[in-house]
Nucleic acid binder design. Structure first.
Lengths: 117, 117
DNA sequence: TAAGTATATTCGAAATTTCGAATATACTGT
DNA sequence: ACAGTATATTCGAAATTTCGAATATACTTA
């Protein structure tokens, strides 16, 4: 009984285990977004975005709705937003303890800062 | 800035993306457990358990403490328990909508039931 | 029906993950 | 120092994931 449940849990986590898919899920927090808007805003290749959306679909993290020429995606359950929020707290704490990552983030900030925000 | 953060998040999710590692984290919910107790209770090969613990260590999900001959593991942050709890709710809802998985779980339950619980 | 637009799928190749088997390391007691 | 115990690491091989390139599908509009 626990086994299938743990496998199911592992699969959801696996669906969230790629930076691009995290970005997609975060973008869907506010609501429905079309596939095109998604890959444009995230600067992804169309095919690549579609592949990642396929993973999220397969694991039932997102749901899609067709309207004319476009496909609109949204999170299947808002509970995922709660998970993400709790994770955010977790990350903040970890970040404070993880100087290496902080440095990395500062560098990125410095670079994008130079380019003029 | 968002990139390193998302990479970090993805890595935590990746650490949780295997049934065995979910089982380990769940076992650590109550507190510190030795490596030996872990793999005995979960019915794992010693080397395999150690490999999974290495993944959890690398991603800083767990922390370990050496005492004599043994190594005791614990969750680095209790916030992870909250994440798991929210996930549990999520799974319960998904489960209700996912008859295939429910069937799978029922079969497992039936099999272990036959063996006499 | 033909051309255009939006999205998905297929196809390798490269990278990563997972596993068991074997081996290594680090303690403990004699 | 030696044997025993607990845990970690290394080594391939098999499985899975990821990517860009190419192609397919589906809808729309002329």
């Amino acid at each position: 009984m626990q086994n299938a449940l743990r496998k199911f849990k592992a699969e959801i986590f696996q669906a969230l285990s790629h930076p691009t898919r995290i970005a997609i899920v975060e973008m869907l927090r506010e609501g429905e977004v079309s596939a095109g808007t998604l890959y444009e805003n995230l600067g992804l290749e169309q095919a690549n975005a579609s592949q990642h959306l396929a993973v999220l679909r397969a694991k039932q993290v997102v749901v899609n709705r067709k309207e004319g020429n476009q496909v609109y995606y949204s999170l299947r359950s808002l509970l995922l937003v709660d998970v993400l929020d709790t994770m955010r707290q977790y990350f903040e704490i970890q970040l404070a303890e993880n100087l290496g990552l902080l440095d990395e983030i500062r560098q990125e900030a410095a670079i994008s800062g130079e380019e003029g925000s």
